[in-house]
Amino acid sequence: MTYKLILNGKTLKGETTTEAVDAATAEKVFKQYANDNGVDGEWTYDDATKAFTVTE
Rank of each mutant, 00 (worst) to 15 (best):
N8Q: 09
E15A: 07
I6S: 04
K31T: 04
N8P: 04
A51Y: 07
Y33P: 00
V39D: 02
D46Q: 04
G9Y: 07
A24T: 10
L12H: 13
E56G: 06
N35Y: 15
N35K: 15
T25V: 07
T2M: 11
A51M: 13
Y3G: 03
T55E: 07
A51P: 00
T55I: 09
E15P: 04
E27C: 10
M1Y: 15
G14R: 10
E56L: 08
V29W: 14
A26T: 00
K4Q: 05
A34R: 01
T18S: 05
G38N: 10
T25W: 06
V39A: 03
N35D: 10
G41T: 01
L5M: 04
N8F: 10
M1P: 08
K4H: 11
Y3Q: 02
K31F: 06
K28M: 13
F30A: 00
A26W: 01
V54A: 03
D46N: 09
I6Q: 04
L7T: 04
G14Y: 14
T49R: 09
L7W: 12
L5S: 01
A48S: 12
L12E: 06
T18H: 07
F30M: 02
D22N: 09
L5W: 02
G14K: 12
T2P: 05
I6R: 04
V21Q: 12
N8L: 12
E42I: 15
Q32P: 02
E42F: 13
V21C: 08
D40W: 14
V29Q: 08
V29P: 01
E56Y: 11
N35I: 15
N8S: 07
A34L: 11
A26S: 02
D22S: 07
D22M: 03
G41W: 06
T2F: 08
T44G: 06
E19K: 12
A48F: 12
K10A: 12
F30R: 00
A51E: 14
Q32T: 09
G38F: 07
K31G: 03
V29I: 14
D36N: 08
N35A: 15
Y45L: 02
K13T: 10
E27S: 06
L7F: 11
D22A: 04
A48W: 08
Y33M: 05
F52P: 00
K50R: 14
K13H: 10
E56M: 07
F30G: 01
M1H: 15
T55R: 06
N37D: 02
T49G: 06
A51T: 15
A34T: 06
K10F: 14
A51Q: 14
T55Y: 08
M1L: 13
V39Q: 03
L5I: 03
T16W: 15
T18A: 07
E27V: 06
T55C: 07
Y3T: 02
D47A: 14
D40Y: 15
D22W: 03
T53F: 07
A34D: 00
T2I: 14
K13Y: 11
T18D: 02
T53Q: 06
T16Y: 15
M1S: 14
E42M: 12
F52K: 00
T2G: 04
D46Y: 03
A51V: 15
Y3S: 02
T25G: 08
L5V: 04
G38E: 06
I6D: 03
T17F: 14
Y45M: 01
N37Y: 12
F30C: 02
A23R: 13
G14Q: 12
F30N: 00
L7Q: 02
N37L: 15
K13W: 11
K50E: 03
V29F: 15
I6L: 06
K31M: 09
V29M: 09
K4G: 03
T11D: 10
F52G: 00
K13P: 05
Y33I: 07
T16N: 05
E56I: 10
K10P: 12
D47W: 08
D46L: 03
T17M: 09
A48L: 13
V21L: 13
Y33V: 05
E42S: 11
T49N: 13
A48E: 13
F30L: 05
K28S: 10
T53Y: 09
Y3V: 02
V39K: 02
K10S: 11
E19S: 11
M1A: 13
N35W: 14
T44C: 05
T44L: 07
T18L: 13
K31L: 09
G38K: 07
G14V: 14
L7N: 02
K4V: 11
Y3R: 00
T49V: 07
A48R: 11
E19Y: 15
K31H: 08
V54D: 00
V54M: 05
L7C: 08
T49K: 11
V29S: 06
T11F: 14
L5Y: 02
D22T: 05
K13N: 09
E42W: 13
N35M: 15
K10H: 13
K4T: 14
G9A: 08
I6H: 06
V21E: 12
T17L: 08
L12R: 06
K31D: 01
A24N: 08
V39N: 02
E15N: 06
T53P: 00
E27P: 00
I6N: 05
E27I: 08
G14M: 14
T11R: 09
E15I: 12
K13R: 11
T49Y: 06
M1T: 14
E15Q: 09
K50T: 04
A20H: 03
A48G: 09
K13F: 10
D36W: 07
A26Q: 00
L5C: 07
G38D: 07
E42L: 13
N35L: 15
A48C: 08
L7P: 01
Y45I: 01
E27F: 15
A23Y: 13
D47H: 11
D47R: 07
Y45A: 00
K10G: 08
A26R: 00
G14L: 15
V21F: 12
K4M: 08
V29G: 04
N35C: 12
G38I: 04
G41P: 01
L12M: 13
A34H: 01
N35E: 15
A24E: 11
W43K: 00
A48H: 11
M1W: 13
K10Y: 11
